[in-house]
Measured scan of single mutants.
Amino acid sequence: SASLEDVKTAVLGLLVILQTKLYTLPASHATRVYEMLVSHIQLHYKHSYTLPIASSIRLQAFDFLLLLRADSLHRLGLPNKDGVVRFSPYCVCDYMEPERGSEKKTSGPLSPPTGPPGPAPAGPAVRLGSVPYSLLFRVLLQCLKQESDWKVLKLVLGRLPESLRYKVLIFTSPCSVDQLCSALCSMLSGPKTLERLRGAPEGF
């Protein structure tokens, strides 16, 4: 439990870093931090981490990651405290083949985003970082199938509809809506759902 406290501190630090690096160059920093966060949550489900502190780590990670939004130009952003989304000039939600690297070039400044813009690109060529939603999407499927803490599952179920409104997140990387529907149906009809959940409301 003591070591998990250190892990929790590290994860919180990564969330803060991602919130900053999403809007700064090099964009590969945001890509790497995002991948680290998603990989860490995957390990929770792989090794069945069920301690309360592990659940709190997942809760905080999902609470942040499910706020990711994308505009029509595929640029990622996060809402501010007033709910207004600021889109990044440097990070996009497109999935890119590994051989192309985590970044790609664009020939010049991008068109203005639909929300308040981030800082304008400084040079004639900007390297865009790929932060594909499919990585998070796979972890969300694991959550629906394996999550043991009701608070975490409730958060994910509550945030998913709003995330799905931003269709560009889903359609720019390999996210299977069929698998999502299947996971939701299995969660509702499967007898093991109630068996594994802690803290579920009576009558769920």
Rank of each mutant, 00 (worst) to 15 (best):
G108P: 11
S134D: 06
S1G: 07
S28H: 11
P52N: 07
L15E: 13
V139A: 12
L180Q: 00
M36V: 08
L141M: 09
R86E: 08
L157R: 00
S111I: 14
P174D: 08
E162F: 11
E195W: 07
P117R: 15
M36S: 10
L184Q: 00
G203N: 11
M96D: 09
D6T: 02
C185P: 01
R198Q: 10
A10N: 00
G129Q: 10
L51C: 07
C93V: 07
S107D: 14
L18P: 01
V38F: 03
P89Y: 05
K154F: 04
S39E: 12
S56A: 13
M96G: 10
Q19A: 07
V152A: 00
Y90K: 03
S189P: 04
H44S: 01
V11W: 02
L188Y: 05
H29C: 06
Y90W: 14
P116Q: 11
A125I: 13
N80S: 06
T50S: 12
L194Y: 10
T9M: 06
S182T: 12
N80L: 08
P26S: 04
L22M: 09
Y90H: 08
H29F: 06
L12E: 15
T106F: 10
I17Q: 02
A200N: 08
I53E: 03
S111M: 11
E202S: 12
S182C: 08
V11A: 13
L144P: 01
K21P: 00
C181L: 07
A10K: 00
S130A: 15
L180H: 00
L73F: 12
T9I: 08
G108V: 14
Q146N: 13
L25S: 14
L169I: 04
Q142E: 12
S134P: 03
V33T: 08
S130N: 15
I57P: 00
L12I: 14
P79Q: 06
P161R: 08
L135S: 13
E97P: 13
A125G: 12
V177K: 01
F204C: 11
P116M: 14
R198A: 13
D82Q: 14
V156Y: 00
T106D: 13
G158V: 07
P161Y: 06
M96I: 15
G129N: 10
R196L: 06
C185L: 09
H29R: 04
S186L: 08
D178C: 05
A2D: 12
R58H: 00
E162R: 07
S39P: 00
R138L: 05
S3R: 08
R75T: 03
S176Y: 07
I57Y: 01
L14M: 08
E147I: 00
L194C: 10
P112Y: 09
L25T: 12
G108A: 13
M36N: 04
T172D: 04
C93R: 03
Y133W: 09
E103F: 13
L128N: 11
S88N: 02
S134R: 04
E35I: 07
L153E: 01
G203T: 08
Q142W: 07
Y23V: 04
Q179D: 14
L25I: 13
L157E: 00
K151G: 11
R58Y: 00
T106N: 12
L160W: 01
E97M: 13
L18N: 01
S88Y: 02
P113G: 11
A200M: 12
A183D: 07
A120T: 15
L184M: 05
T50F: 08
C91E: 03
R196F: 05
G118V: 14
K8S: 10
D149V: 03
T193C: 14
P79Y: 05
S182I: 08
S182D: 14
